[in-house]
């Protein structure tokens, strides 16, 4: 079938999973798994409610602010670590620990330090996202073609020009890959941060649905959050493909 081009196989496997889900739900094997069709209906009902849009906008704002901080700190730190040997010796170990560490465990400490509120969630997003951005930026800059830097120097490039016109552009594919992974982790950060605080945004909704055992709404929200993460990641990925095209001969 070529009617929908390449989309068919992915779409197909999803359909199969949804059918399996529907069957398990209809068979009433477990109370935490309602039929997929009922989840879809629940999703359609909660989407237009004011409660949802308020929660979503609070969550989105925390996500956006946290990601913005992750970008403006992560990329410069990654660049400096790649260029300054001593800095990478000092910070490298910590970045490597934190990139794989369970950041969620730190949220309670954060709550104690910065209080229970939006700031905690923003910092959680930052911590979830920043380390992978640092790491990938560092790799990208390190791998940048030395002879391009030399070329720029031979034509009298100033130091800032070497960064803006050669190194950053050269590392763009890796930086974007880091940003994409960071954004996916950032979505996790919002949800986990708000869940642990349980009084804000989507986290509050999750808490509400699970407390009242509203499993259809709960799963609908899970799917909505997944879809958001997927959309953000795909948007960055398409940017990556565009950049890869021009960087294909590096």
């Amino acid at each position: 079938m070529t009617l929908f081009g390449k989309k068919i196989p992915i779409f197909f496997s999803l359909v199969i999973w949804f059918i399996v889900w529907e069957l398990i739900g209809q068979a009433k094997l477990s109370t935490i798994i309602p039929p997929f069709s009922r989840v879809v209906v629940a999703g359609i009902t909660i989407l237009p409610t004011e409660k949802f849009s308020t929660a979503a906008s609070i969550s989105l704002r925390s996500f956006a602010i946290g990601m913005a901080f992750a970008l403006v700190t992560g990329i410069p730190i990654g660049v400096m670590m790649a260029r300054v040997e001593s800095l990478s010796k000092i910070l490298g170990m910590w970045v490597n620990i934190f990139v794989s560490a369970p950041i969620s465990a730190l949220v309670p400490i954060l709550m104690a330090v910065v209080g229970i509120g939006e700031t905690t969630v923003v910092v959680t997003v930052l911590l979830f996202a920043v380390f992978v951005i640092i790491l990938d930026t560092q790799v990208g800059i390190k791998q940048a073609d030395k002879s391009l830097v030399e070329m720029a120097r031979s034509f009298g490039a100033r130091r800032y020009q070497i960064y803006t016109k050669v190194l950053l552009l050269s590392a763009l594919p890796e930086i974007l890959a880091g940003v994409r992974l960071g954004a996916i982790r950032g979505v996790k950060g919002v949800v986990i941060g708000q869940l642990l605080i349980a009084i804000l945004g989507v986290g509050e909704l999750f808490e509400l649905y699970s407390k009242h055992f509203l499993m259809e709404e709960f799963w609908a929200l899970v799917i909505i959050v997944f879809m958001f993460a997927f959309t953000v990641s795909e948007a960055i990925a398409s940017l990556e493909r565009y950049v890869e095209y021009y960087a294909s001969t590096r």
Partner: peptide, 26 residues
Amino acid sequence: AFVFQDFALLPWANVLRNVAFGLELR
């Protein structure tokens, strides 16, 4: 001005921008 053995062209820039790059830096 230097001509490099491995060409050292910016892969993300077209021919025009590559040729003008020395002037752009100035």
